[in-house]
């Protein structure tokens, strides 16, 4: 029983971090219609900044710089590249993002080299124990912080002018534009938010139990793609729920692999996509997706 609870706690905390990344995918998609495949390297860039700066300026200042830096990088990608596309076609933008991802990742790989850079967080390798369940302290903090961030996002989208403008622009860009909402601003706000969320997720993905900042961190971000898709592509709530589902299912598949050995080894790698396909078979627009996105 404790084993099951440990794996569940592992899965939930990891799922919340995946949720942070998946929400970034959703916000960029709804605010500018771009499938942001450069999200992983923005995440890595944020975590890299924290790793190199925590020594000279301290962890908290470095975290602020890392989050702001990732947000700025995302805004720049949008302003310099996405908005200058001749045709605002999702396919073209997606390929452009793949190119940006390769460039950023190559440069960051070169800078990181074969080192594993530690993130220098004050919680280090501390462990949290409760009722026989042990969980890395970084995961407990990540889970708490993710819940706070999601609450702030709800507040932003439901109660502030900027958030409502962003929702209006996402629902119907042309009409929103006619009503005086500047799409360039809502777009920039969306990219900035996504970049900041990615950097937060990056800090925790690079904290214990992971070794630190290494180029593979950028690929870990892609684990959030099934969460994004099964949540419904354009739903923030869907992305969070999707992240939790993928996190829990992956942890259970790995944890009970020996009981599930008739399905073969390496189940944890396949299960997120299998779940995604199953959900899409039953609900083609994802768990919380808008039907319109499918009908077109």
């Amino acid at each position: 029983m404790t084993y099951l609870l440990t794996q569940l706690a592992n899965g939930l905390s990891y799922g919340l971090i995946l949720g942070l990344i998946a929400v970034g995918f959703v916000i960029v998609f709804t605010s500018t219609g771009v499938l942001n495949f450069a999200h992983g390297s923005v995440l890595l860039a944020g975590a890299y900044l924290v790793a190199v700066l925590h020594d000279p300026i301290g962890f908290w200042a470095a975290a602020v710089v890392g989050i702001a830096g990732a947000a700025l990088l995302a805004v720049l990608i949008n302003a310099v590249l996405v908005r200058n596309l001749a045709e605002a076609n999702p396919g073209t933008a997606a390929i452009l993002m793949l190119g940006v991802d390769i460039l950023l990742l190559t440069e960051l790989t070169r800078r990181i080299g074969n080192r594993v850079l530690t993130i220098g967080s004050p919680w280090g390798a501390d462990v949290f124990s409760f009722g026989g369940i042990t969980l890395p302290m970084s995961r407990v903090i990540a889970a708490g912080l993710a819940i706070v961030v999601f609450a702030l996002l709800w507040f932003l989208f439901a109660r502030t002018g900027t958030g409502i403008a962003m929702r209006a622009a996402a629902a119907d860009g042309d009409t929103a534009s006619l009503m005086g909402i500047r799409l360039s601003r809502t777009g920039a706000a969306g990219w900035a938010l996504a970049g900041a969320l990615a950097a937060i997720a990056g800090i925790f993905l690079a904290s214990f139990p992971a070794p630190g900042v290494a180029p593979t961190l950028a690929i870990s971000a892609f684990a959030a793609i099934p969460a994004w898709v099964l949540g419904g592509f354009d739903s923030v709530v869907g992305a969070i729920v999707g992240g939790l589902i993928i996190g829990v299912v992956t942890a259970l598949a790995v944890g009970y692999e020996s009981e599930l050995h008739f399905l073969g080894r390496g189940l944890g790698e396949v299960v997120p996509y299998a779940v995604m396909i199953l959900v899409l078979l039953v609900r083609p627009s994802g768990l919380f997706g808008r039907k319109e996105a499918v009908r077109v």
Partner: peptide
């Protein structure tokens, strides 16, 4: 032998470690 298959993308081996401890 208790095998645990992973990929280079897995950098958090919490679930694998718990499974090894359980075994």
């Amino acid at each position: 032998v208790v095998p645990q298959e992973i990929t280079p993308r897995d950098t958090d081996l919490s679930a694998q470690a718990s499974a090894l401890q359980q075994a």
